[in-house]
Amino acid sequence: MKYINQPIRKKDAMQLVQGKPLFLDDLARPDSLIVKVLRSPHANALIKEIKTDKALKIPGIEAIFTYHDVPDHRFTLAGQTYPEPSPYDRQILDRHVRFVGDPVAIIAGETEECVNKALKLIKVKYKVLPALLDFHAAKDNEILVHPEENWRSLCPVGADNKRNLCASETDSHGDVDQILSECDVVIDQVYHTKANQQAMMEPFGTACYMDAYGRLNIFSSTQIVFHVRRIIANALGIPKSKIRVTKPRIGGGFGAKQTAVSEVYPAFVTWKTGKPSKMIFTREESQIASSPRHEMEMHVRVGAMNNGKIRAIDVYTLSNTGAYGEHGPTTVGLSGHKSIP
C-alpha cells in the first residue's frame, strides 16, 4: 500500500509552483531566425501577382517564400492516426487563399524588426472571389472551397470536395419516426453552438534547427509530438527518419494543439536555409488562424413516455469546419455516435 490511497507529488510540482517551467519562446536558440507569415485580407481569392524584391532588400532578411517555392502536394495538419479521417486539403502556401488570415508568404529574418518591415513591403495582387460565409448554404453550392483536383480523402467518411463536404454519414438503429409517433411526449428543438477559441495561456510556437546528423529538429508547444513528425514529413516531402520532434511542458492546449498550427513554417525555413528558426504566434494570430472548436447546429428530436422512459433520439448535425477540414469528420461524428446504443 505504498502508493494506493496515498498522496503522490507530481514530478514537476515544485517547479510549477516556483515558476520554473518555461514557454517555448524562452527555450529557443538565441540565434534563431524570426519567422512570420503574411496573411490574406480576403476570405476567398486567387493570388494574381506577388512581389518580394523590395522586401528582400531589407537588411537582415534571410529568405521570403511564396507558393512558387513550396511543394505542390496536399496534406492535413490534423493530429490523427494514419490514415487520417481529415482530408488532405492543405499546402504550405497556396495560390488560392480561403479565409482572412490564410498564409500568403513566409518571411524569415534576423530580427523581429526587419521581418515586420519586410511584411509591409510585399505587394500582392488578388483576384477576389465570392466567399461562402454561411455554413447553411455551403453544401452543393456553386462556390467551391476546394475546387482543386489534388484534394484527397484517405478514409471513407463521406467527403466530397465538389459538394463542399468534409464528411457525411447516416447512422441509425430502428425506425425512429415510427417510435416517435408512438411517444407521449416529443421534444423537437434546434441548438446552435458557436465556434470558440481555446485561448490557452501560451500561444502556438515552434523552434527548429538542424543537428549534426542532418536531421530537422522541431521543438514545439504541441499535444501531438508523434503526429507532428508525420505531418511535417508529408508537408516537406521528406522521410520521417529525417525529423525529430520534442516538446517542453506546454502552457495549455485544450485540443487546439492537437493540430500542427505553427510547426510547418519554421520547419520549412530551417530545412531550406539550414539555419535555426522560430515562429511564435501573436494572440491575434492564435485567434484568427488556428484550430478553434467547430460551430455546429444540431436538430434534436427526443421521444419519451409519460413514465419517463426515453424511447427515441434523432439528431441531425451540421458542422462548420471552415476553410480546411482538420478534425472535421471526427468532431461532427461525436455529436451523434455517443447517442446511439
Results as ranks from 00 to 15, higher is better:
T170M: 10
D171E: 10
S172L: 13
H173V: 08
H173D: 11
G174I: 11
G174H: 09
D175L: 00
D175I: 02
L180I: 08
C183R: 08
D184Q: 01
V186C: 15
V186P: 15
V186F: 15
I187W: 02
I187D: 05
V190L: 09
V190C: 13
H192L: 02
H192M: 02
H192S: 11
H192W: 05
T193Q: 05
K194R: 09
K194I: 15
A199G: 03
M201A: 15
E202Q: 06
P203F: 06
P203E: 02
G205A: 14
T206I: 02
A207K: 01
C208K: 08
Y209V: 03
D211H: 05
D211M: 01
G214D: 11
L216V: 02
N217G: 05
S220R: 03
S221E: 10
T222Y: 15
T222W: 11
I224E: 11
V225S: 05
V225D: 02
F226W: 11
H227K: 14
V228Q: 02
R229A: 03
R230F: 01
I232P: 10
A235G: 01
L236H: 00
L236P: 00
G237N: 09
G237I: 09
K242Y: 15
I243F: 01
R244N: 10
V245Q: 04
T246I: 07
P248R: 03
I250A: 02
G252M: 11
G253N: 09
G253K: 13
F254A: 09
F254C: 08
A256Q: 07
K257Q: 13
K257D: 11
Q258M: 04
T259P: 04
T259I: 09
A260I: 07
E263Q: 12
E263C: 12
V264N: 07
P266D: 07
P266I: 06
P266Y: 15
A267F: 12
A267I: 14
F268R: 04
V269W: 01
V269G: 01
T270F: 08
W271P: 00
W271M: 03
T273I: 13
T273Q: 09
T273M: 07
G274H: 10
G274S: 08
P276R: 14
S277Y: 07
M279R: 02
M279T: 00
T282E: 06
R283E: 11
R283P: 13
E285P: 12
E285M: 09
S286K: 05
S286N: 14
S286G: 15
Q287W: 15
Q287H: 15
Q287M: 13
S291K: 00
P292D: 00
R293F: 08
H294Q: 12
H294D: 12
E295N: 05
E295T: 13
E295W: 06
E297V: 06
M298K: 06
H299M: 10
H299C: 13
A304N: 06
M305D: 15
N307D: 09
N307H: 05
G308P: 14
K309D: 08
R311C: 07
